[in-house]
Design a protein around this nucleic acid. Structure first.
Length: 889
RNA sequence: GCGAAAGUGGCGGAAUGGCAGACGCGCCGGAUUUAGGAUCCGGUAGCCGCGAGGCUGUGGGGGUUCGAGUCCCCCCUUUCGCACCA
């Protein structure tokens, strides 16, 4: 239903419709699709720009929070396209993963059916929002033509020793019934379902990310266009620490002789405190613990205590609170620096999987060791005296002192500053063969085995004769078999599909058994951005030349929740691909923007909370353009926003206002009014009109137009302050309305309906309005593309806004002619001066001092200084005048 | 506990060390309208004042500066990240 009012324009009657987003949006979406408007090919003659949003997990329905980053990406992509860049802006689906499998178990259907249906629905949602993707490049990671290259990459890594298998204690999620990577354990729980993580011993495949730890860490400094927060998180996650590995010889039970060659190796960053190491602590899971239990006179009691530690610790760590506890093993080890026999305890707070799983305890200089020592009455020996403050003594110490200082009570090392002692003692340990300098990382190798169906099969075969064999490249892909019914029983669904499990050994041809685990889905997402460069390649993951053209990604947008998972894996895979000769750059993402979430009632939108806002509903009521504009305007992209219907209405109202401003002029503009014949450029059409002939109001509107172009251009690129760009466009509309009101033009043409200027309209009026309106439409185009295209066409332009290009501003026009300068006296504004811009500083100073308000404030004062900040302000600094007499000669 | 970021009107938010509160929401008033809605115009930090104008004001307290929301130090609060990494 279209409400149409009728207005008269000259002899003709033309309809002036209200803004009707539904019709306009459908029209332009159809046209973009028909024209394949966002498809691109490699074109060396133009600057490329790769704009990417993190692809989506097809969970079912996108809400207004999900689509925010797609909108941000679309604004940037459209703006860059208007600026003449060859823009790659693709989209795809991170389609493997557990929700699909869980849904399949619940519905007794197939994960693929659920996944494909969700993809179809979400794709239509994105299209309805007018997001301009190169849909011909779309793929899903569950496509066999995609995941075969996961397998290919895995084999390449296997060849280079970067993929390996080992039995290890892994994080097992009982809720999802699969193993989790360290990165996927959050506060002791599963990142996805929250269930408490258990320890299990399993044979697992790992990717050797630790081999790249130093490289990944070092290059953090070069990621200048990444949020500092993300870089800090990655730095902490890699967790490099320099220290030393030192051997404490194990003494035989009940004696002081060393037990053969047995030793406890500890890792420490403070070898300078080793003379204060009065005991040694083992993690409950340390390999030596079981042996010490065997050799203990009370083996059963020993085992019982260790067992309790092992079982309880993970649960206790969930809550973050763990009372430090331990027990004496009854055995001793020799401190290699003091020669002393020190007790060996098992302690619940020592981590098995960091360093060597054993530590030397220096209670005087480490708070944890201090608490432990005080609890169990173990000796505390001060070996570092801080450079300031009172002298420390072990007996009276109330807390450990970890500050550096001077080494004491440490034999030949006494007197050294602690930093130097670290070096000297490390050298000494190496010389005596009892230790060496070592670097430890918090980062662990990436465990990728998952005991689930809906993922990429790991292309490995186990042969009784030949052992672990990689599947031959020509036999890829190892396809997921069809499984009829998903029951969720059993740990590894593929293991129950006998046709899948039985295989031939790639080496000897004998009957063999296939690997039945699938890959972590983070493998899929660690290189998808390269596949977009050449998505249909059937003989390679991509053509290196295509990636060389498009990559690295210039602008990457996604949530901070991927700061250490996806973004560290992708950096790692990029380095591996570089070493494989596939890519030529070191880092995959030049600039990263982490967008804020959309909240409602203060909470993140989620189906379970029942607070989701459906973009389809908003679009049906207000239009996609209004929704887009609202989400870009309400806050800076990196900030979270609180959803309000009123805010969305405000944006819709603004677009109606734009519509009512432009449409009355459309017939006249389409007929050429206000433009200069032969003036090709969009904006600048009026600039051919000689400026001196324009009146002050006309010049002011032109200035606003050009200043707005400057501001918006700057806000979009490189700053990406989308909210202030929109507010500048709102100001331009307000100012154009004000001008039209004053000249009775357009929306103010009155009952007679004159869209064209009457005989008394100022010279050049239509020209300056046309210039303002054309600039406005073009700058709105990235935000509200449908409305912009429609209005652009309505004022007589064929060929669309992209071809029209981004408007240029003229600095001379953008500059104000007159300045309103505030004049401060002692920092407080007391007057304003109106001066021409070119006024000399001395003249400004003279005018300021002559101003009556300033005079009133400076009377009886001595003017000490006058500060003139060109184009900004004047500040007159005074102080009380000296007494009259003292001032005379 | 450690680390990072942030605290600005009734609300969302603007401000390369230079007039704090742009723009929007909400609210108030006017025009138009039979009326309402929509639309157009104007007002809107607080306090004092009829007014001109004045005083106060960016979580609190110090400091640097002619000038501080912005820079420095201390404290408070919130959010996020890490959480026994030896």
């Amino acid at each position: 239903m279209t409400a149409a009012r009728w207005r008269h324009s000259g002899a003709l009657s033309i309809p002036v419709h209200d803004y009707d987003p539904q019709t306009i949006e459908r029209k332009w979406q159809r046209r973009w699709s028909e024209e394949r408007a966002f498809e691109v090919t490699e074109d060396p003659s133009r600057p490329k720009y790769y704009c990417l949003v993190m692809f989506a997990y097809p969970s079912g329905h996108a809400h207004v929070g999900h689509v925010r980053n797609y909108m941000i990406g679309d604004v940037i992509a459209r703006m860059k396209r208007m600026r003449g860049c060859n823009v790659l802006h693709p989209f795809g689906w991170d389609a493997f993963g557990m929700p699909a499998e869980n849904a399949a178990i619940k519905n007794e259907s197939h994960p693929e059916r659920w996944t494909r249906a969700n993809i179809a629905h979400m794709k239509s949602q994105l299209q309805r929002l007018g997001i301009g993707y190169a849909w011909e490049r779309e793929f899903a990671t569950c496509d066999r033509d995609y995941y075969r290259w996961n397998q290919w990459l895995f084999l390449k890594m296997y060849e280079r020793g970067l993929a390996y298998r080992k039995r290890s204690s892994v994080n097992w999620c009982p809720g999802c019934r699969t193993v989790l990577a360290n990165e996927q354990v959050v506060e002791g729980g599963c990142w996805r379902c929250g269930a408490g993580v258990e320890a299990r011993d399993l044979e697992q495949w790992f990717l050797r990310i630790t081999q790249y730890a130093d490289e990944l860490l070092d290059r953090i400094g070069g990621l200048e266009a990444w949020p500092r927060k993300v870089l800090t998180m990655q730095q902490n996650w890699i967790g490099r620490s320099e220290g030393a590995r030192v051997r404490f010889a194990l003494l035989a039970a009940g004696g002081s002789d060393t037990a053969g060659n047995d030793a406890i190796e500890v890792f420490t960053t403070r070898i300078d405190t080793i003379h204060g190491a009065t005991f040694v602590l083992l993690a409950p899971e340390h390999p030596l613990v079981d042996r010490l239990a065997d050799e203990s006179p009370d083996a059963a009691g020993f085992r019982d205590r260790v067992g309790r530690f092992r079982a309880l610790d993970r649960m206790a760590r969930l809550t973050g609170q763990l009372e430090k506890e331990g027990f004496d093993t009854g055995r001793r080890a020799r401190n290699p620096f003091t020669g002393e026999a020190v007790p060996i305890w098992v302690a619940n707070f020592v981590l098995a999987d960091y360093g060597t799983g054993a530590i030397m305890a220096v209670p005087a200089h480490d708070q944890r060791d201090f608490e432990f020592a005080r609890k169990y009455g173990l000796p505390v020996r001060v070996v570092i005296q801080p450079d300031t403050g009172p002298r420390l003594a072990g007996e009276t110490l109330e807390a450990a002192s970890s500050a550096p200082g001077t080494v004491v009570a440490s034999g030949e090392f006494s007197g050294l500053p602690s930093a130097e002692a670290v070096k000297a003692m490390t050298r000494a340990a190496e010389a005596r063969g009892i230790g060496r300098g070592e670097v430890q990382y918090r980062l662990k190798d990436w465990g990728i085995s998952r005991q689930r169906y809906w993922g990429t099969p790991i292309p490995i075969v186990y042969c009784d004769a030949c052992g672990v064999r990689p599947v031959a490249y020509e036999d890829l892909p190892v396809e997921l078999p069809d499984v009829e019914v998903f029951t969720g029983r059993g740990d590894s669904p593929l293991a129950q599909v006998s046709e899948f499990v039985s295989a031939r050994c790639p080496s000897c041809g004998a009957a063999a058994r296939r690997e039945t685990d699938t890959m972590d889905t983070f493998v899929d997402s660690s290189w998808y951005f390269y596949r977009f460069c050449d998505p249909h390649n059937r003989t390679a993951p991509f053509r290196p030349e295509s990636v060389r053209y498009w990559a690295p990604v210039d602008f990457y947008i996604g949530g901070v929740e991927h700061a250490i998972l996806h973004l560290i894996y992708s950096r790692f895979v990029c380095s591996v691909m570089r070493d494989l000769g596939l890519v030529t750059h070191d880092e995959p993402f030049t600039r990263l923007l982490t967008q804020g979430m959309v909240l409602r009632d203060g909470a993140v939108m989620s189906k379970s909370k029942g607070n989701v806002v459906d973009p389809d509903e908003m679009t049906a009521t207000y239009g996609a353009d209004a929704l887009r504009l609202y989400e870009m305007f309400v806050a800076p992209p990196e900030k979270e926003i609180e959803w309000t219907d009123a805010g969305l209405e405000g944006s819709a109202r603004y677009l109606g206002r734009v519509w009512r401003l432009v449409t009355p002029f459309a017939p006249a503009f389409a007929a050429g009014a206000g433009s200069t014949a032969g003036a090709g450029g969009a904006v600048g059409a009026a600039s051919a009109a000689p400026a001196p002939r324009l009146g002050a109001a006309e010049r002011a509107l032109r200035r606003k137009t050009h200043e707005t172009i400057r501001r918006v251009s700057d806000d979009l690129d490189p700053r990406v302050h989308l909210n202030t760009a929109v507010s500048a466009l709102m100001e331009l509309v307000n100012e154009t309305y004000a001008y039209c009101e004053r000249t009775r033009l357009g929306p103010f043409a009155g009952a007679s309906g004159e869209a064209a200027p009457g005989p008394d309209a100022p010279a050049g009026a239509l020209g300056v309005v046309r210039e303002a309106i054309e600039a406005l439409i073009l700058m709105l185009a990235p935000f509200t593309p449908h409305l912009a295209e429609e209005l652009w066409e309505s004022i007589g332009h064929a060929g669309g806004v992209t071809a029209a290009g981004w408007p240029e501003f003229d600095p001379d026009i953008a500059r104000a002619e007159e300045l309103e300068l505030p004049v401060q006296v002692n920092g407080k504004v007391r007057a304003h001066l109106s001066v021409p811009v070119e006024t000399a500083e001395a003249e400004v100073q003279r005018l300021a001092l002559a101003d009556p308000h300033v005079q009133a404030r400076t009377a009886g004062q001595q003017v000490v200084r006058v500060i003139v900040v060109p184009r900004r302000l004047v500040n007159v600094v005074t102080r009380p005048a000296p007494a009259q007499r003292g001032g005379e000669h």
